[in-house]
């Protein structure tokens, strides 16, 4: 049995112009590995990630033949049972720390809130645990960061705080939605190293959602390529250069390369058949 099993997942939004299908029959399994989900905006990758946590608000609707996490049927359990899984066993890191941290609360208060409310820890215990979590994501001066407000942190620092916060309950599955896209390239590498170590050392499963094919190829074990709500190709990350689907090939080809030819970049000729 896999850690996460998804069969025929569909996400539909009711709009004035009729139903819009954001995810159209996606199936995959995830074990204690790094699974990349790549696609451009509107491909349904974020919706797929959010569906696992049932974080899609009406008018959006989630349907699936099966969606099981550690044997628990996520489609059947109550909202209350779902809340018990969120954060504790399945956690999510969003793209931009600027929008996911509370701007008027000190970092320390945000990091310890869950520990105190959910786990009933004392203020001192919670603070010690928070310091430990910040050290785990290689923040050099954790005491200072605990007392800081989010706007006093750089982007890379804020993103590490987010990761630390998600990892405190030691989840089995981490869904990371573009966790490094708002960061500079030199900082990106550091955040990825931290995530990588967590997968290796804790045996966590990681769903890594990104628009950046090259990044995913370097960092993940396996890659699902999404286009218009469907998986068009599944491939081992190391073999991405041998991708067979024209969409995957097109995405790889249209990026400028240092020292590459200066003529027009190849563009993607979209084929209606890809979304069939």
């Amino acid at each position: 049995m896999s850690l996460l099993e998804v069969e025929n997942l569909r996400v539909t939004f009711a709009t004035e112009a009729g139903p819009v299908e954001a995810v159209r029959g996606v199936s995959f399994r995830l074990d204690r590995e790094r699974l990349g989900i790549v696609g451009e905006s509107g491909s349904g990758k974020t919706m797929t990630g959010r569906s696992v946590l049932r974080l899609i608000r009406p008018p959006g609707r989630i349907e699936a033949d099966r969606m099981a996490f550690g044997g628990v049927d996520l489609m059947r359990i109550s909202e209350r049972e779902m809340r018990a899984l969120r954060g504790r066993r399945i956690a999510m890191v969003m793209q931009d720390p600027k929008f996911s941290l509370n701007p008027v609360m000190r970092v320390g208060a945000q990091l310890t809130e869950g520990l105190r409310l959910r786990d009933g820890m004392s203020a001192r215990e919670a603070r010690a645990k928070a310091l430990e979590a910040l050290e785990a994501v290689q923040i050099r001066d954790p005491e200072r960061v605990l007392d800081a407000y989010p706007h006093e942190l750089s982007g890379g620092m804020g993103q590490r705080v987010m990761i630390a916060m998600m990892l405190i309950p030691e989840p089995d599955l981490l869904i990371a939605d573009e966790p490094t896209s708002a960061l500079d390239v030199t900082v990106q590498a550091e955040v990825l190293r931290i995530l990588d170590a967590l997968v290796r050392e804790r045996g966590m499963g990681l769903m890594f959602i990104s628009h950046d094919l090259n990044l995913v190829a370097r960092f993940c074990d396996r890659v699902l390529v999404m286009y218009r709500g469907r998986i068009v190709e599944e491939i081992e990350a190391q073999r991405l250069s041998q991708a067979t689907h024209p969409y995957t090939q097109g995405l790889l080809g249209c990026l400028p390369k240092i020292g590459g030819a200066r003529g027009p970049l190849p563009t993607l000729a979209r084929d209606a058949a890809w979304s069939e």
């Binding site: 451009e40 628009h211 097109g250 995405l251 249209c254 400028p256 993607l268």
Partner: peptide, 10 residues
């Protein structure tokens, strides 16, 4: 997006 970037740069 990458494919749209290529079109805009061209």
């Amino acid at each position: 997006d990458a494919s749209v970037q290529a079109e805009a740069l061209n």
